[in-house]
Design a protein around this nucleic acid. Structure first.
Lengths: 234, 234
DNA sequence: TGTATTTTTTTTGTCGACAAGAAATTGCCC
DNA sequence: GGGCAATTTCTTGTCGACAAAAAAAATACA
């Protein structure tokens, strides 16, 4: 029923089947092309991508492992819901992981990491300049993910990526369009954080990350408050 | 080649195939019945469990998602290695997550959580009394996992479980037998932590968790130092 | 008309088979 | 005897088909 994005390429290589389906579905879920609750039909996906159900199934198992889809035994599977009732757990995790990963990045980053981080920051700034909300959200997540990678702690990288994924969905839900000047402020704050990381100033990086994270939390809460005033349906 | 534990039950229900294989393999990996590097053969597992390769495959995909096995494209898959060169990342994550989850448990636990925690603590004490190292390791992980659950933050629960899984493997590697008096000390420390959680004293819980975690880290480092003296092969 | 029961439909879980990729083996040439 | 190419073997990735479970629809009965 829901029209997926990409067209199925003419010829697929062996082993690429599950991977491509996984990545496309994942992006559609995170960008809310497939909003929470959307039914996921194996046969439909199979004929859409012109492959058998087996690789589709593998992609779904992976997505279920990441908590992006829910599978009822023997029955339907659908895009997982966002738990708005417990947003504070999301905020707690977001702030702490922003701080920890940024601090570790300041301590343990290597030259190549900085190049990656700066490339991501450039993408973010470009998205802001283009007023492309969707690209901005994705680029922001990618930037902070690259900072986490620079900390070289696989445990923190894994959680943080999961948190950022949920953040992408939540932000996408409320960022229809934005005329605010906040994005530019975020660009500036990112620059400060990157400078602290590059200078290996762990304490400063921690402090800046905390401020940045709390500002994001505050911003999301504001968006929610505004939204709540408009629709009472939830 | 490697002899798995459980015998394949006579009749399996629909939908239980992948789940049982997943759980059995998982336990064998965490208890080092299947040590790092062990080859995982799909057909062999299939005939051992008397089912087709499909459910086996699903179990393997899940395990790969958790990082417990590595899959070479088009080629063999094997139990993932433990990264001894970067143990400090493990220690960093362990200490922080011990602290955070225990603190949150003190703040947000509900009555049912405490019952669960105490049941786990009892299991741990029993394993210590029985001098059953393997059971002790598993019970210790289960106890701290239940404390994390009491914090009701799914992000932290997920990472922490992953950390505890790796911890099970690492500890199993060095705990052939232990005559030390440490286990009893751990029992006592657990009691203190649980009391702090029950009293909703977040700061005390944090402090106790930190001490406990750092002691565990120290203990592991000692084991490693001793081990290193004996075998030079690594 | 409302409810319980049977039947049909829909979707998943499992199976056996086949083909592609990569390693191991063999054969060939020097 | 050693190095290189062709071949075989071995494992995985993919396919189409079938059967079990659960929901939906249809039927029977009060």
């Amino acid at each position: 029923m829901a029209a997926q994005t990409q067209s199925p390429s003419a010829e697929r290589k062996r082993g690429s089947g599950a991977k491509t389906v996984y990545e496309l579905l994942r992006n559609d879920i995170l960008d809310l092309v497939l909003p929470p609750g959307s039914p996921i039909d194996e046969v439909q996906l199979a004929e859409h991508f012109k492959m058998s159900r087996t690789p589709i199934r593998e992609a779904l198992v992976r997505l279920a492992g990441e908590g992006l889809i829910d599978t009822l035994p023997n029955r339907s599977t659908m895009v997982s819901n966002i738990d708005f009732l417990n947003l504070h757990t999301f905020f707690d995790a977001l702030v702490l992981m922003y701080r920890v990963t940024t601090k570790l990045a300041a301590q343990y980053h290597r030259p190549a990491d900085l190049l990656e981080i700066k490339a991501r920051q450039l993408e973010f700034a470009t998205a802001v300049a283009n007023q492309d909300a969707l690209a901005m959200i994705a680029a922001n997540a990618a930037l902070h993910s690259s900072i986490a990678e620079a900390g070289h702690n696989p445990y923190f990288v894994a959680v943080f990526n999961r948190i950022l994924d949920d953040g992408r969905r939540i932000l996408r839900l409320y960022y229809q369009s934005y005329g605010d000047r906040l994005p530019q402020q975020f660009v500036d704050e990112h620059e400060e954080i990157i400078a602290a990381v590059a200078a290996r100033d762990a304490d400063l990086a921690d402090r800046l990350a905390r401020i940045h994270a709390e500002q994001i939390v505050e911003q999301i809460q504001k968006l929610f408050a505004r939204k709540d005033r408009f629709d009472i349906s939830l």
